[in-house]
């Protein structure tokens, strides 16, 4: 058993210190919103926050997040109205949606550090999040909309 905090809840997970965080979140904590894409840090679909900062959960272990606050998409906003979620809906960003949770978590981390990123800062921060369906233009537009209202 490893005790970690996900979405402000303290959980005893039936894993080991070296159990991968992504699979612990999905299979042990039962929070399937966080997606597996590559398992090797290349796609960003597994992005969660650790103490508010975007982290690729597929590269982290339970031991590394002990005592820290893990936030997944399920905990990003109580009512699903985070400004990014609102912008994402307004612009109809996703196609299949598989990458989008990671995109939103990455963007949320960016905006909490830098509430008014320039387009090039958006691109730089989002460049590790791959979309199989190429929704990039709408992703950038939605991050801009959430940060500036336009």
């Amino acid at each position: 058993m490893v005790k970690i905090t996900i979405n402000e809840k303290s959980l005893d997970l039936a894993g080991q210190a070296d159990t991968n965080l992504l699979w612990a979140i999905r299979d042990l904590a039962g929070l399937p919103g966080t997606k597996f894409g590559c398992g090797t840090g290349l796609c960003g679909s597994c992005t969660v926050h650790v103490d508010g900062v975007a982290v690729r959960s597929c590269l982290a272990t339970l031991e590394e997040v002990e005592g820290k606050a893990v936030t997944t998409i399920e905990g990003l906003s109580d009512d699903g109205q985070h400004p990014l979620q609102v912008a994402w809906r307004q612009l109809g960003v996703p196609q299949c949606g598989y990458c989008q949770v990671g995109q939103i978590m990455q963007a949320a981390s960016l905006l909490s550090e830098n509430p008014r990123p320039s387009d090039s800062e958006i691109l730089e921060s989002m460049s590790g999040n791959i979309c199989r369906r190429g929704c990039y233009e709408r992703i950038v537009a939605a991050v801009r909309l959430a940060s500036t209202g336009a």
Binding site: T34, I73, P94, G97
Partner: peptide, 21 residues
């Protein structure tokens, strides 16, 4: 019309094959 699953997608509730438990 926007995707009927839009709200579920942006809140992480959309269920993909690998999410079925």
């Amino acid at each position: 019309i926007l995707a009927i699953d839009l709200d579920d997608i942006v809140t992480g509730k959309a269920v993909y094959g690998a999410d079925v438990a």
